[in-house]
Nucleic acid binder design. Structure first.
Lengths: 149, 149
DNA sequence: TAACAAACAGAAATCGTTTCTATTTGACCA
DNA sequence: TGGTCAAATAGAAACGATTTCTGTTTGTTA
């Protein structure tokens, strides 16, 4: 239960109680290879815990996302996806409009954005979303399906 | 009715009938200084037309957006905003998390994105969303309201 | 262990968006 | 210019993701 201990410390640092639900959410997200919707996460949680409500999952994901423990991304068909980014660092995503696979991108333009905003708008950047929609390599070989959304 | 004539031509080019509703939507969006939600646009339309349904507005916005006549942007609180981009060219947006004002940014990283995606993922870029969330200059002077969403 | 605030379950509400069906409108042609 | 037909629309209803609400349970701290 090494993981659970470190998760408990993360939560403690955020002044959040280390509850069974929160630890279970972190445990599932950290084992996730890709992205998952609140509902998908909820379904996996139900296998581990006797009971857990979908509203609870939403609340926990929101808390963790607000605190930068996980990241929320915007999928074009408007469901929200989350992923664990504990030590992955800030990066962006490529979403295939055909098969809906999500891939990581190393590219980040945060410095240019920061410059542009402070120079021209005199505003303050809190966060940014960069998301690329396109066709992944396998899908780009196939025909059709470009207007998937 | 100069505008209406050119709007009619745009629609004709897209093989869409130049209906009263579509022309009215284009007329309103082209006069919009900022961004508007489907519902806001609908409310303005109701002043001009005796009847128009909200589903009709959604459908028209979707059609125009699909055809690149207008652009859809994603607001963090998940409402969709649209703006007329007839001759404005491709650009991105800064959204103030406090007052929700939307400002244009000249910055665009499309070349870097293109490079990154074709080199590392061997995929094909169709579109991208870059959206910066932060505090606009007036709001950054005020206190609080950072966690507006 | 007791006490209290925080977290939670489950039901229900909310709200943006979409679907469905009957009716109307615009484009084309005689 | 009027007739015809497919496209477009109104209005009601459905949908589905997310949030709110209330009473109950859980974790923390002393």
């Amino acid at each position: 239960m090494n993981n659970n201990e470190s998760f408990a410390e993360i939560l403690k640092g955020l002044q959040l109680k280390a509850t069974t639900r929160r630890l279970a959410v972190l445990s599932i997200l950290s084992g996730e290879q890709a992205y998952a919707s609140p509902e998908e996460i909820w379904k996996k949680l139900k296998r581990k815990l006797n009971t857990i409500g979908l509203p609870t999952v939403y609340r926990i994901l929101e808390e963790l996302s607000d605190n930068g423990v996980i990241t929320k991304i915007i999928h074009p068909s408007r469901q929200l996806y989350y992923y664990y980014c504990g030590n992955a660092g800030h990066h962006h995503h490529f979403i295939c409009v055909s098969c809906r696979k999500v891939e990581d991108l190393n590219f980040c333009a945060s410095r240019e954005i920061e410059n542009e905003v402070s120079r021209n708008l005199k505003g303050r950047v809190l966060s940014h979303i960069l998301q690329i929609n396109g066709l992944c390599e396998p899908c780009s070989r196939k025909k059709g399906a470009i207007n998937a959304f």
